[in-house]
């Protein structure tokens, strides 16, 4: 069964890629019917495990070291690093999110009021590239050559607090903005479906008691103010459905 499932998922993924490309270039005229064909649709494509796609090894090591402190390992959950948050961020930056593909990115870029929202020409990918380079330059001076993955937990906490409070200023990048983006993306990874790379073992969902990609609570809706004891599940199922011996 695992093999069958895998093959089917791969097939779905490849079919969807073709259809997606088709949809984006072709206008359609639809009459007499609702268009439907087997395998149509765009199921999500799970990330491929393995080395960094967007980050350099040094960048990846830094992000690992920082998400490990934003979400530390303790009695409530594994760390953000163990849950895969840095892998999540890496894959997101390599995709449509990283390049701001869906956003309005036409010039002129001008500074506005806070009420007018983000006006930077920098994509998230560029923000990470610049932010990490500036952070490394800062660490080489302030921490005598040590990068975050070579620092103690306390040093990394102090660095993160400094960026958050704007007390640490980076040369050539917005340190506070970088911190906010990193925190947002780390939380996205910790609580998104595990197929995107983070929340491995449902670490984030189990911590708060979110049952995941379930779609029917008709049996539970009347159990007000009671513990709802249902197993956590993701879009691609559960590890024990597909993996031997777990």
């Amino acid at each position: 069964m695992p093999h069958g499932t895998l093959r089917r998922r791969q097939l779905l993924a490849s079919t969807s890629a073709v259809l997606l490309a088709g949809c984006s270039v072709r206008a359609r005229t639809i009459s007499d019917t609702r268009p439907w064909s087997a395998g149509a649709g765009e199921p999500p494509i799970a990330i491929t495990p393995g080395p960094w796609v967007f980050f350099s090894p040094e960048e990846g090591a830094t992000v690992d070291a920082l998400v490990e402190r934003l979400i530390p390992h303790d009695a409530l959950s594994v760390s953000g690093r163990e849950a895969g948050c840095s892998v999540f961020i890496d894959r997101q930056l390599a995709g449509a999110y990283g390049s701001s593909e869906r956003l309005y990115m036409r010039p002129p870029f001008m500074a506005g009021t806070p009420m007018q929202g983000m006006q930077s020409a920098l994509t998230p990918a560029a923000q990470y590239r610049q932010g990490l380079a500036a952070l490394h330059a800062y660490c080489r001076v302030a921490y005598v050559g040590r990068l975050p993955h070579e620092m103690t937990a306390e040093q990394r906490d102090a660095l993160l607090k400094g960026l958050e409070s704007r007390q640490v200023k980076l040369d050539g990048a917005d340190g506070h903005g970088f911190f906010e983006l990193l925190l947002t993306n780390t939380m996205e990874g910790f609580f998104a479906d595990p197929l995107y790379g983070g929340n491995q073992g449902f670490a984030g969902w189990k911590m708060i008691g979110f049952p995941g990609a379930r779609y029917d609570y008709r049996d539970e809706i009347a159990h007000r103010n009671q513990v709802i004891d249902v197993a956590t599940v993701g879009i691609t199922g559960r590890p024990d459905w597909t993996r031997k011996g777990t």
């Binding site: 609702r34 649709g41 998104a192 479906d193 995107y196 879009i235």
Partner: peptide
């Protein structure tokens, strides 16, 4: 685009907060 239940948000992958 054209969008319909079975092809664009079936229960199998509709519950995807990130997407």
């Amino acid at each position: 685009p054209w969008r319909d239940t079975a092809t664009d948000f079936p229960p199998s992958y509709a519950p995807d907060e990130l997407r």
